[in-house]
Simulated scan of single mutants.
Amino acid sequence: MPIRHCIVHLLDKKPDGTPVVLHARDSELASSQAMENLLADLNESYNAKQGKAWGLFHEESGAYPFSGWLKAYLDGEQDFTTFSRQAVEHLQQLMEESNLSTGGHVLFAHYQQGMTDYLAIALLHHSEGVAVTDALDVTPAKHLDLGQLHLAARINISEWQNNSQSRQYISFINGKNGRKSSDYFRDFIGCQEGLDVPGETRTLLKAFSDFVESEDLPEEQAREKTKTLVGYATSQAKLGEPITLDELSGLIDEERPKAFYEHIRNKDYGMAPEFPADKRTLSQFQRFTGRAEGLAISFEAHMLGSKIDYDEGRNTLVIRQVPTQLREQLRRAQKGADR
């Protein structure tokens, strides 16, 4: 993960309402193993966060100047330190107006992962701990607590520069204490939400359920394909990479690698070819199964409450929108019984 440029500034904001004080670094951080470890840990923590939103820049303006400063830096009109100083001063102003933040160290890191350039921005906080010195004394020590990462954003620079139609080249964490706690940070980036990630993920799962039903797959095959989908999507989310429908289709059916992809296109579900997975939605996607005395029932968890109702008191299931093939079988059986 080559780090092109990295710098840290400090915004000191006390909870007593005193003005925010900026302690700005005047030069970039030197490349080091510690810096690489920090960025790797930051990415791991960021990827693991649930509830991220995805979007794109607002048009550059006085209210949203960040994209203009970033472009000037990328075009070589100013250096990284100057860019970060402009940005952190803007964040200082917005933080001054906010009563929801206590400040912290602000990290700016321009790095490359594979063939893609990213800019990560994170507000970092410390936790108190203890350490043992070389003299074997126990002493108080502070350390960065990346588990408390609540305000951070990542910009896919390559996608922003090369794909003018993209609406998902920025991701950011929605605040722990609700949307208001992250509004000022989103405004600092100048980001507007452009993609409903939970909605896209729900649509994918709906398309998959329809595909399994249309293929009339045996229960074991349906279960294995479900594991494949959830495993792939979860793995991509952990890596911070999007789901690619074409790639997913090949994993779901290796003998017919285009089958699922063509099902999605033919039914016009309206999904983007690539989109990030929502881990919370994925975690709710499982199959309920049961067999007893000639009865076999299997359905995805997301259908409970929509197409299927369970009455625990009466120990009954009510199924709506019976699958077409089953409905035809029942209709034929009913006609035979009426003769």
Rank of each mutant, 00 (worst) to 15 (best):
R25D: 07
L42N: 04
L42P: 02
I7M: 00
L38E: 01
K13C: 04
C6N: 01
L42F: 15
H5N: 15
W54P: 01
A34Y: 08
A40R: 15
E28K: 01
L38H: 03
H9P: 05
Y46K: 04
L39Q: 12
A48M: 07
V20L: 11
M35N: 12
V8I: 14
I7S: 00
L22A: 15
H23M: 08
H23F: 10
E44G: 15
K49W: 02
V20T: 15
L42G: 03
P19T: 04
S31T: 05
D26C: 03
H5C: 06
C6Q: 04
N43Y: 01
H9K: 06
T18S: 14
Y46T: 07
L29D: 01
P15W: 06
L29A: 06
E28C: 08
K49V: 07
D26R: 11
D26S: 13
G51A: 06
A34E: 15
S31A: 09
S32I: 08
A48G: 09
E28L: 04
A53W: 01
E28G: 02
M35T: 13
L38C: 04
M35P: 00
D41W: 06
I7Q: 00
A53K: 10
K52Y: 06
A53D: 07
Q33K: 06
Q50A: 11
I7Y: 00
L39P: 02
S45W: 13
Y46D: 03
P15I: 05
S45D: 11
Y46L: 15
L39D: 04
D41P: 00
H9G: 05
E44H: 14
M35S: 11
L11E: 03
A34G: 10
N37M: 12
N37H: 12
I7C: 00
A48S: 14
D16C: 03
M35A: 14
H23A: 11
D41R: 13
A48Q: 13
S32L: 09
T18G: 05
G17W: 02
L11R: 03
A30M: 11
S32R: 10
N37Y: 06
H5L: 01
L10W: 04
P15Q: 04
A30I: 05
L42Q: 02
D12Q: 14
N43I: 02
V21H: 12
S45G: 14
A48N: 10
L22C: 09
S32N: 09
S31H: 10
